[in-house]
Simulated assay, not measured.
Amino acid sequence: MAASAVLVAGCSPETTRTFHNTAGSELDEGYFGNPTMNNHLVMTGQYNAIVSLSRKFAEEAPTTINFAFNDASLDASARASLDKQAQWIAQYPSVKFRVYGHTDKVGGNAYNKRLGLRRARAAVNYLVSRGISRSRLEAVASFGETQPLIVTETPERRNRRTVTEVSGFLGKRQQLQDGKYALFSYTETVTSATEPHELTIIDEGGSAEER
């Protein structure tokens, strides 16, 4: 009974919920189509390229800008950061970007979601004004108050932000290895196995006999 009590005590509601979830449900972040899109990127070889570019972008440009309370206007600091983003983005004309809008936890979720989207659109509009094609930019997602950097119910500037991320490519990315290469490799392997080979047998005395 003591052992059972310990096991039950170790199972939090979150652990129990996760255990009984449908297989693969943890891949669904609540946005329809994301798991399928992720699989597509992996299978077409774009995922690794996106991850690499995302890291490079985060290292070389400010990916986040912040906002005043209940406001979607861009201050001087935000514009300066977006200028640097635009300079970086301009170097990769075939790459697409997505801008996510966030708010702090003050106010209702529905209102904050709309506010986050307004902030994302403000950032996209500014990048367009700096010469970036709108077809390469998306402001289609807003996490509202649901993903704070600082967990607090009070106003927090660091939570009032947009984050720009690499999202994909304008066209189909050329693969380094395709089916034709695999067919060539297979054909070479079969041909090599069926070609005449010279057999050399070494006897116990150390002399070689060729057949």
Rank of each mutant, 00 (worst) to 15 (best):
A78T: 05
E156T: 10
V151M: 09
T146S: 15
A122Q: 00
R158A: 12
V151Q: 12
L137E: 02
L74Q: 05
R211A: 00
V151H: 04
R121N: 06
D104S: 00
A58P: 05
G179W: 07
R130M: 07
P62A: 08
S185P: 00
A80Q: 12
T103W: 00
A78K: 00
T194V: 14
V51H: 10
S77M: 11
G10I: 10
H40M: 08
N38A: 10
A68Y: 04
G45Y: 03
P93A: 12
N159D: 10
F57V: 09
P35C: 02
N125G: 02
L127N: 08
S73H: 10
T44M: 03
A141P: 00
A76V: 02
V163S: 14
V163C: 05
L27S: 11
P62N: 06
F69E: 15
K113L: 10
Q175D: 08
T154Q: 15
S129G: 12
R121V: 06
R98A: 15
A3E: 15
A141L: 15
Q147N: 10
D71C: 06
V124K: 05
R134Y: 09
W88H: 11
P148V: 01
R98N: 14
T18E: 13
G168A: 06
E60I: 00
Y181H: 03
P196H: 06
S77A: 14
R161A: 06
T44Q: 08
L74C: 02
E60A: 10
G206L: 00
R134I: 07
H40K: 07
S54I: 07
A193F: 09
N70L: 08
L127Q: 04
K113W: 04
Q147F: 11
L127Y: 03
F143R: 05
V6A: 15
L176I: 05
W88P: 01
S81G: 11
G101C: 09
T154W: 14
E156A: 13
V128E: 14
E26H: 13
